[in-house]
Amino acid sequence: MGSKDLNTWVSDKLMVLLGYSQTDVVKYLIAKAKKSESPDELVGELLDCGLSLSGDTRAFAEEIYARVPRKTTGVNLYQQQEAEAALLLKKQKKKFPFRG
């Protein structure tokens, strides 16, 4: 996602969440998302900015966190969720083995 597309996406989401959007706020949130080490940390930043704790706020934090470019070589949110789902499936297979 390009920088302009990301700015537009964040601006649109802020309009839904807050009812307004400002360029400086968009840039600030993108910078916070880049520096955050997890979506949960970003939720805290959003709460500090005046957003209320809700499913929409959490979803916004997870989405923006996944969309911002990062220089780290760690696992991104999608890869983390995929690994967690695979682990859950493995646990379920152990707990409920197929009996055919």
Rank of each mutant, 00 (worst) to 15 (best):
L18W: 04
K90Q: 10
S38D: 09
E41P: 01
W9M: 05
V68L: 09
E82V: 10
G19I: 13
Y20P: 01
F96P: 01
V68T: 05
Y65G: 02
E41H: 06
K71M: 12
V68P: 00
K94S: 12
A59S: 08
L47I: 13
F60E: 01
G55Y: 12
R99P: 03
P69K: 02
E82G: 01
A86E: 09
S11A: 15
A86N: 09
A31N: 11
Y78M: 14
K27Q: 10
K93D: 03
R70N: 02
Q22D: 02
P97Q: 07
L89G: 05
A33V: 04
M15T: 04
R67P: 02
K94C: 08
A66T: 01
R58P: 00
I30F: 12
Q22T: 05
N7H: 10
Y78L: 12
G55W: 13
N7A: 09
K34Q: 12
S36E: 09
Y78E: 05
D56A: 13
V26I: 10
I30T: 01
E62A: 12
R58Q: 06
Y28F: 15
Y78P: 00
D12N: 14
E41L: 06
P39G: 10
T72D: 14
K94N: 10
K90D: 11
P69L: 09
N76F: 13
L53H: 06
V25F: 10
P39Q: 01
K34S: 10
A31Q: 12
Y20C: 08
A31G: 03
L53A: 05
D24L: 05
D40T: 07
K93W: 10
R58H: 03
R67L: 13
D24K: 12
A86F: 15
N76A: 11
A59C: 07
V25L: 14
W9E: 01
L87C: 02
P39M: 00
V16C: 05
